[in-house]
Amino acid sequence: MNIFRLLGDLAHLASIFILVHKMHTTRSCRGISFKTQALYVLVFLTRYIDLLYTWISLYNFVMKVFFISSSGYILYLMKYRFRPTHDPSLDTFKVEYLVGPCFVLALIFNYRFEVTEILWTFSIYLEAVAIFPQLFMMQRTGEAETITTHYLAALGAYRALYIPNWIYRYFTEGTVDPIAVVAGIVQTGLYLDFFYVYVTKVLQGQKFELPA
């Protein structure tokens, strides 16, 4: 564990708290893509299946259980509690285009051809692109509530912070996880456009609006 990874994990935790807080205070899930949130549940379930047979640390265990349960809770909020505030006509990205190719890629590019290993690899690839429905939705509406942008900034910062973590681990432990690194760089890259608008607009007190 190094500082970059810890900060990354804390940013990930923060993103979830921001999202849940937004939904509770506004009593709404407006502007949030149900599809992206559902993909995160799939990501966590396929990646953390090792909870059943591997013990890494208490930290690792608690975080995994938290990510699985909080992502399930968010789906519950969107599907039941605040269902009327979700507009499926804006959330139209086809998730098949993400899930299918990620699964095929996981079958081809993996460390071992084993069920759990392929599921882990699939989860890494899927996480990298799971934000697409959310970004697509914002592209369609051309705007986002400020609190939603804070959620996205924290979520993007999480994977961005894993990059210095991997560099640090390469020099201190000599370990490289090419699948995680390549997917993590792609994942972070997808946020660059968003980060630019976030820093130049939202952090200056302006509304998040995309050019028409």
Binding site: R47, D50, N60, M63, F67, R112, W120, D177, P178
Partner: peptide, 10 residues
């Protein structure tokens, strides 16, 4: 060797 990869990250 990534053989029996232990995935210790989240």
């Amino acid at each position: 060797d990534q053989g029996n990869a232990v995935h210790d990250e989240l």
